[in-house]
Amino acid sequence: MMDMKTMNMPEKKVDDNVLIEIQDVSKHFKVSEGILKAVNHVNLTIYKGETLGLVGESGCGKSTFGKVLMGIYPATSGKILYHGKKDIEITKKNLFAYSKMAQIIFQDPYSSLDPRMTVGSIIEEGMIIHKMYDKKRRQERVYELLELVGLNREHANRFPHEFSGGQRQRIGIARALAIEPEFIVCDEPISALDVSIQSQIINLLHDLQKKLNLTYLFIAHDLNIVKYISDRIAVMYLGNIVELATSDQLYEKTLHPYSKALLSAVPIPDPDKEASKKRDILGGDVPSPINPPKGCPFASRCPHATEICRQEKPKLEMKQGHLVACHHVKK
């Protein structure tokens, strides 16, 4: 959806396509051992109508980043500017206005729905909070939303425990859509679901995006699905974005050594391809985000790491058409 020209736009000039500007955002947590740097100096632009995939391993800060973007966690430093129906900066003060435009779908469809509320009241709650419509119209909207996500209106009076995982995720989507948002953070919406149900939800999210002109930040660790659903993909490691490119480019010409290892580690459901594939198996584990290394975050596991990598943190720069943070990728 986005060509490289728009990606190259200088950051200062806001064009009409930009929905969210994330400027040097960090999120640190104070823990007893020191400071946990979950998200480090992230700069990112999200465009209207696109799906931005965010991938990385557990503990890389991707979910924290999603929550910072939703205003659930206040950022430790940096600025997030939102240019939707209203132009606002995402701060605690603006959170109520912002939550009318942005919503989140959670990973676990079991713990994210209140077991004591009926499905209808779960979906309606957001509309009541934002004083949308009168009671009768809200009821109609609940029915419409249930049908939109592939459930039926009789389900409104039931409780969450009566539904399967896939159906609960549909309820979660209906709740997010109830207040007519423009932007949705999908935090691993399918990883708790079975394979045959995953494709149902992916297709639903895809259709809704087209119908309602939504913008998604799609957080996941399943790279095949991210490739399929995203226009652009950002790869995150230890709280830093290490590579950002359109999804085709990222797969065709992977630049960062971590992205390469991540892509080659994903098993492909095809025995011949699996047998012939050369795997770059990464040794070791992700270092702790508490007091992380001062150089490149990936240096301790990188097969190409040299002295400069351990000393100096690489900047996220435009190289060969990708934004990539690595000392050893040529311009």
């Binding site: 159906q167 394979v195 045959s196 995953q198 494709s199 149902q200 490739k227 399929y228 797969y251 492909i268």
Partner: peptide, 23 residues
Amino acid sequence: ALLKSLPTTEMSRDERLVSIPGT
């Protein structure tokens, strides 16, 4: 159906995933 429901890396965004209805 199970094999078809998985997106492959060659698939474009406009192709729909085959999904298995029901549970």
